[in-house]
Simulated scan of single mutants.
Amino acid sequence: MLKTTPAGFWTNYQNGSIESKINDQGPWGGNSEFHWKSNSANVFSTKEILDFAIKNGYQLTDSLVYKRKSIKPFTNYNDKDYSYRLLETFLNKADFTENYVFVFKTGWIAVEPGNERETNKNGFVIINLNRKEFTVYHLWGE
Rank of each mutant, 00 (worst) to 15 (best):
M1N: 09
L2I: 13
L2W: 08
L2C: 02
T4F: 10
T5A: 11
A7T: 07
F9Y: 12
T11D: 09
N12I: 03
N12T: 14
N12V: 01
Q14Y: 11
N15P: 15
G16H: 09
S17L: 15
S17I: 00
S17T: 10
I18C: 04
S20D: 14
S20T: 14
I22W: 04
I22P: 00
N23V: 12
N23T: 11
D24K: 15
Q25C: 11
G26R: 12
G26Q: 11
G30T: 08
G30H: 09
F34V: 12
H35S: 12
K37D: 04
S38D: 07
S38R: 07
N39C: 02
V43G: 04
F44S: 09
S45N: 15
E48P: 00
I49Y: 06
L50V: 15
L50K: 13
D51Y: 03
F52E: 05
A53W: 04
A53T: 06
A53G: 09
I54Y: 00
K55H: 07
K55G: 03
N56L: 02
N56S: 05
G57M: 06
G57E: 05
L60H: 04
L60M: 12
L60N: 04
D62T: 05
V65G: 01
V65A: 03
K67A: 06
K69M: 11
K69P: 00
K69Y: 11
S70M: 12
I71D: 04
P73Q: 07
F74K: 11
D79F: 07
K80V: 10
D81G: 02
S83L: 03
S83G: 14
Y84R: 12
Y84P: 01
Y84E: 05
L86T: 06
L86F: 01
T89L: 05
T89G: 08
F90G: 00
F90M: 10
L91D: 04
N92Y: 10
N92M: 08
N92C: 03
D95M: 06
F96E: 06
F96P: 01
E98Y: 00
N99T: 13
F102E: 03
F104C: 06
T106H: 01
T106Y: 02
G107H: 01
W108P: 00
W108R: 08
I109K: 12
A110K: 02
A110C: 05
V111A: 03
P113R: 02
P113H: 01
P113F: 01
N115L: 02
E116D: 11
T119I: 07
N120V: 08
K121L: 01
N122I: 07
N122A: 06
G123M: 07
I127H: 09
I127N: 08
I127K: 09
K132I: 00
F134N: 08
T135K: 07
T135W: 07
T135D: 06
V136A: 14
V136L: 15
H138D: 09
H138L: 14
